[in-house]
Amino acid sequence: MQVLVLGLGNILLSDEGIGVRVVEWLSQRFQFGPEVELMDGGTAGMELLVPMAGCDLVVIVDAVRTGRPAGTVVVLRDEEVPHFFRTKLSPHQVHLAEVLATLDITGETPDEVVVVGIEPLSLATGLELSAPVAARLEELAHHVLSELARHDLAPQPLTHRPRSLLLEAGAFAV
């Protein structure tokens, strides 16, 4: 079983970066098995071909625009995904539509594609999430975890959160 959890988005544009933030949140709290790769995909395009090719399951976390209130969580599966991307909702739609269509051509379409999305409030320049989106970050992460649990791939919680090596070494009083 080969699984990719892909956080997409531009961390410079506040809520746009939610996908990356969810992947960061997960990687700081859980130890994932060898079948599961977590990836900060940023705003990448064709670079995503290799990691996505032939996966059994790809879980994409991203900001999506559906015209619903900010902070609304949206989960899309399989055939809903290409349709969704073709109709231009996410700023990354074109990237992913191209990548998914390309994988169709090369015969490496992932067996299952799930998008865990959230309606953004702000796409202004800035590194912080808006309050309604930040409030849902953990919920999005738990959607990802439940997708993994469905395949018996739930990760182990980390016993302690990784911090900077200097902190670990006691270089500074905390």
């Binding site: 705003t43 559906t66 015209g67 969580v73 949206v74 909702l89 700023p91 990354h92």
Partner: peptide, 21 residues
Amino acid sequence: LACAVHVFDTDQQQVVRVKAL
């Protein structure tokens, strides 16, 4: 253009029916 400028889409987005949770 993602580089010269960035992803702030000022267009009205088409509303698509999706499953909301």
